[in-house]
Design a protein around this nucleic acid. Sequence first.
DNA 1: TTGTACGCGTTATCAC
DNA 2: GTGATAACGCGTACAA
Lengths: 345, 345
Amino acid sequence: MNKKKNITFNDIAKYTNFSKTTISRYFNNPDSLTPENQKIIAEALEKLNYKENKVARILANGKTEFVGIIIPTLYYQYYSEILTQILSTYEQYGYKFLVFIGNENAETEERYIRELLAYKIEGLIVLSHTLPSRQLADLKIPVVTIEREDKYVSSVNTDNYMGGVQASCLLAKHNCDILVHINSPSSEDVPAHGRITGFLDFCQEHGLKHEMLYRELGSTYESARLQLADILEYLDAKYAGMRKGIFISNDTHANVFLNLLFRKYGRLPDDYYIVGFDNAPISREAVISISTIGQQMEKLASEAVSLLVEQLNERKNMNSAPFKEPVHKVITPILYRRETTEKDL
Amino acid sequence: MNKKKNITFNDIAKYTNFSKTTISRYFNNPDSLTPENQKIIAEALEKLNYKENKVARILANGKTEFVGIIIPTLYYQYYSEILTQILSTYEQYGYKFLVFIGNENAETEERYIRELLAYKIEGLIVLSHTLPSRQLADLKIPVVTIEREDKYVSSVNTDNYMGGVQASCLLAKHNCDILVHINSPSSEDVPAHGRITGFLDFCQEHGLKHEMLYRELGSTYESARLQLADILEYLDAKYAGMRKGIFISNDTHANVFLNLLFRKYGRLPDDYYIVGFDNAPISREAVISISTIGQQMEKLASEAVSLLVEQLNERKNMNSAPFKEPVHKVITPILYRRETTEKDL
DNA sequence: TTGTACGCGTTATCAC
DNA sequence: GTGATAACGCGTACAA
């Protein structure tokens, strides 16, 4: 918005001897104009070098086509991949995304949300875990969350329980003598907690020897490494000579564990089988490729956006806001068998 | 923007028996009101649950506080880290970011830019390489690029030449018999090309035996792996028994190369020394930590935004757009010595 | 310190 | 098929 006046509908209207209304119609309902008049306007737009102003349009018709995103970090490839996929839906729906990186601080994220609301976002996609869904539901705009606590809002989640079962099942098939799941302690209302119950249920149902290791692995490489080095020594000692099937909370941590093994043994020992979670790039790019339970990031993202768009459309059709039960979509995980379990690859 | 009428300045004006103007001033110049009146208005805002509408403000004062970002991908941690740092400058400057992932297609990116302009972004940050800076300069809004061709626009770049020298120097200090630089062929006007000239100049000036390997490593793990596996065989054969110092285009590729070595030898052989570039997370998280020339992502991002903000402020102060010579800032890279060169760590 | 009146650039509602 | 006019919600001369 320069000091130098932009060309407006008014200018083209005068230039073409039409009214502003007709120019507007040229954009929003071109078929209501005669082809000749369309051409006249098109040429005038060219000649005067008109640039559209969607801010004014927003004020007039109330549709910003903005969607807010609050994502905890891009450090994990899981999040950056999902963000990529969300942003790419612009091609399909035309919604523009205002992105904030939440920093685990509730007040900060509330401030972000106020700012987003001030810009009249039509909907909000939340991946950050900071604010309870109860609070998000109060925003009075459609909200969709991805892989986080979602009691009071619509959401898209991976079937983590099935993932836990798949991982355990794969390790069991390889005749592991002991199944171990390493994970940070987590609240039960977080979808990822299903990985733990899936693991436990499968082991119990099939009478498999197993151990659940809850460790706060932290959010940095170094802290995870310290914890996992400890765990490695513990497992080596406790289960010496036994075939160990290790299911680790995510690929980043699985990679750390794998590296520790390589540094100790120069290779993946025959008695270790490893399965990660996410199918993050690191699972393919590790020293040997890591078997993993893949989250379908592209699907999580596209389903989240389409769910949001549905709700936006509902809003537009019925003036009265009907009470909307939250919708929870579930995405199936995909098992990737790679070198950390298929030793002959 | 609901059907249900939002509370506006008008509503609070009526409620408090002030005029709209006074309400406006409460937000933009509160000191011009008496403390008592401030309180009255504050309470009314609370009572009526007023939500500010920045879209209307934009139309009135022309300041969107939007900045556009076009970034090629988030797959590389280099980009996602820079994006994170850019977004975090919201705390300092208050600019909101509209993010598009450029997909290497010029027409698509031009469409993205048109859309951004329609939303009256005040400035643009470009990391994508798709559009020439000549074209970006024509946009008539401040543009800052990061690590890409930048002849006609302002930019922030790493001192790649110095990085190339640092890498070569480190390898030379370790008495490598042959220095090898592996990189994709690149145009000379891309900053990253400095890594190559830095390497070549250093080797020539110091009379070091060296070889430059241009290979199109591609943008996927698999293609890089194929190329690098080839290169490994080539180097093993050609320089058998010699101490090889390998400087690789970036950490992702350095990691691939390191993994190939580990798979072949179970460890990093004594006659290989490796230096990457970027200081991406993978350089710390590889099977052994990779020495690297670190780009200061935080600084690249913050300098880019501050450079942009400077230009935005200039614009606001002088009504006439003065001819602006592009400014090019250079950020010093930082050498990280890690296990792929300091073998006794 | 506060109020009036108008402008920002578009869309919506009628009317013709 | 086209036009006049009133919104949309806020900022800002200018006046008081």
